[in-house]
Design a protein around this nucleic acid. Structure first.
Lengths: 173, 173
DNA sequence: ATCTACTTTCAGTATTTACTGAAAGTTTGT
DNA sequence: ACAAACTTTCAGTAAATACTGAAAGTAGAT
């Protein structure tokens, strides 16, 4: 049994490390992605100290990233009776995870981008020269596309897992 | 007319800058995103020197990022007769842009991630203790979800623009 | 009111990532 | 063969980002 636990910890370490690399490629900081990976695959909620120890990071770092993950809705704080400290547990349902990430990215990144596009479109609406026409057309097409995609993601994100799967099956079938 | 060109350049500068910020949030380097924004909204293909001048960046930087964008399939090199140097022009069709970004991200990031998940799932397949069971279950669900999403994106990405719109309309309607 | 067990903040530092500019390489024309 | 016009590479440097650790803040228990 001890042998098996060691083996598990090796695999898990690999997973946590790789999830960190992937997070970095997607504009999420590595530590945050690693903490997420760790909690996602943990059988029990973990304390700040346990996270610090596992990843060999400082208290400040652990704290900041844990709180950021809470801000993304990917983990939540729980308290245990008799214990004063906070424990953290991850949302484990992958569909729910996906919805939360999508919702936050929309709010933080897509909506502001749309706002920029809208402003640029407006500002060039009535310009008559060729450069302006080209610019305006491209911006308009971008805005339409992004806004369309954004609506789609709202729609899909508000589906129940089951419905989404059905829809997807139709697509794949 | 000169007044209007100045006004356009202001708007465009704003757009290029914002696109850069957004790129950074999505794990793309800022300069690369800015060059992309610039070429996307340019009426004519631009040379390395023109890009350097517009963004006030070095030759090395311009060169590297232009070539990376070519690698992503988001811009292409064109040559003009009588001119020795290379010019760059962006893919302007937003649907095609989307497909290329999706395809590359899949190849570069999703596929390797899937490989990691598969390894982790395999390695813990027959472990019997609780921690390993929890780990294995979570990894399996992640793998299924990501692999599913990956297949979906292949499917959508291989549609013609028109078909995709129709499908989307059904979703939104 | 004080102590203890925590959480939070942040100035300073380390690490990573991006950029510069100049030298080396390549291609085309004479 | 040489020169001119361009592209590519890369060692060194700058800038951005992430992290540490210690000090300050907070809240429950006595």
């Amino acid at each position: 049994m001890i042998k098996e636990n060691l083996a598990l910890e090796d695999v898990r370490e690999e997973f946590v490390a790789q999830w960190g690399v992937m997070g970095a490629q997607w504009g999420i900081n590595r530590t945050m992605a690693q903490i997420h990976a760790l909690l996602m695959t943990a059988a029990e909620a973990m304390s700040t100290d346990e996270v610090m120890e596992y990843l060999e990071i400082s208290r400040g770092n652990a704290h900041t990233n844990l709180k950021d993950l809470v801000g993304w809705g990917l983990i939540r704080i729980i308290t245990k009776k008799g214990e004063r400290k906070e424990f953290f547990e991850a949302e484990k349902d992958v569909w729910e995870m996906f919805r939360r990430i999508t919702r936050e990215r929309k709010r933080r990144e897509i909506d502001p981008a749309l706002e920029t596009l809208r402003k640029c479109r407006d500002a060039t609406k009535s310009m008559k020269n060729r450069d302006a026409k080209v610019f305006h057309k491209q911006i308009s097409e971008l805005e339409d596309f992004v806004s369309f995609g954004s609506k789609m993601s709202d729609r899909v994100g508000s589906m129940q897992h089951g419905k989404a799967i059905k829809l997807a099956m139709k697509l794949l079938g």
